[in-house]
Design a protein around this nucleic acid. Sequence first.
DNA 1: CAAGTATTTGCAACTCATTGCAAAAAGAAA
DNA 2: TTTCTTTTTGCAATGAGTTGCAAATACTTG
Lengths: 160, 160
Amino acid sequence: MTSYDQLLQVLRDEGHRLTPQRLIVLRVVAEGRQHMGVDEVFREAQSAYPFMDLATVYRTLRLFKQVGLVTEVAIGDRLHYELTHPDDRHHHMVCRVCHGAFNLSPHYLEEFNSTLVNEFGFIPDLDHFTIAGVCVNCRPQSPAEVGAGSEEFTLDEDPT
Amino acid sequence: MTSYDQLLQVLRDEGHRLTPQRLIVLRVVAEGRQHMGVDEVFREAQSAYPFMDLATVYRTLRLFKQVGLVTEVAIGDRLHYELTHPDDRHHHMVCRVCHGAFNLSPHYLEEFNSTLVNEFGFIPDLDHFTIAGVCVNCRPQSPAEVGAGSEEFTLDEDPT
DNA sequence: CAAGTATTTGCAACTCATTGCAAAAAGAAA
DNA sequence: TTTCTTTTTGCAATGAGTTGCAAATACTTG
């Protein structure tokens, strides 16, 4: 049983129907690069199935997100999606300047999460979290740093 | 010099023109309750200045946000704005169920901020931060908690 | 205070995303 | 396989927010 079939089983198990549209969107996202924009998913899906409708792509991605098959990442002000890798869950730091997305281990949010729960009884949605900002490469460097490069930092960028 | 005039000075100092539309939007936000929706701002502004256009309200609020006069809060999926109180800066926890917005002291994000800067050289936008989730009152209670109330937590809700 | 210019407004068109609804189709049952 | 029920799709309309552009206007300078 392939990994792709396992994904389909997730849908079946929750009582969702396996329509050609869903199979295609799933395949596009599974085979595509990290965090694809909705329009990209739409174009690729449409080339495999010309009757594909944009609304269906939106609905399908939302469904996939609900059942955990994909992860939603807000890049700029557009929504992107990537296949969820259960063994490599991570959050994202998205650079406001270059729009690059960098992975962030869930470990960095554990304490924040406990604090909100313990102090306020507030349960934050931290299934997937995206924080915007400016990455090392786009950061205005202080004079002392100019020419020093940024070898001191490790940014695990999503291949795009 | 009133506080209102100080706000106007901020605009003037940055070279922005003081149009009637801007004066009115500023007054509406300054006198309004916490985090008003754009449509509310629009309605109130329109009653003071019938020619007010919705696009102008959007542009004006965006400008005010840029210069720091107002803070943008995403509640549900709509944007809300509140006057920035420099002596009471805070982030928000927004409940996905009741849509209530609760204040969160910047102190709770200091460590997270330093971690990202120190470990990744990533400078997160933490001027204002909104985290979605479920608040104590809307949280499904465990059997042991039923009837116990939520006196153990202090949620500082924005008056709405 | 009049003239000049750069910004801002109002309007309409547009984008991204969602939704109502009738028609189509998936899966279950016979 | 045929029928039935429920979900899903395609389409068109809607909603929130943004944008291009010509007309209007706030501010600057003489």
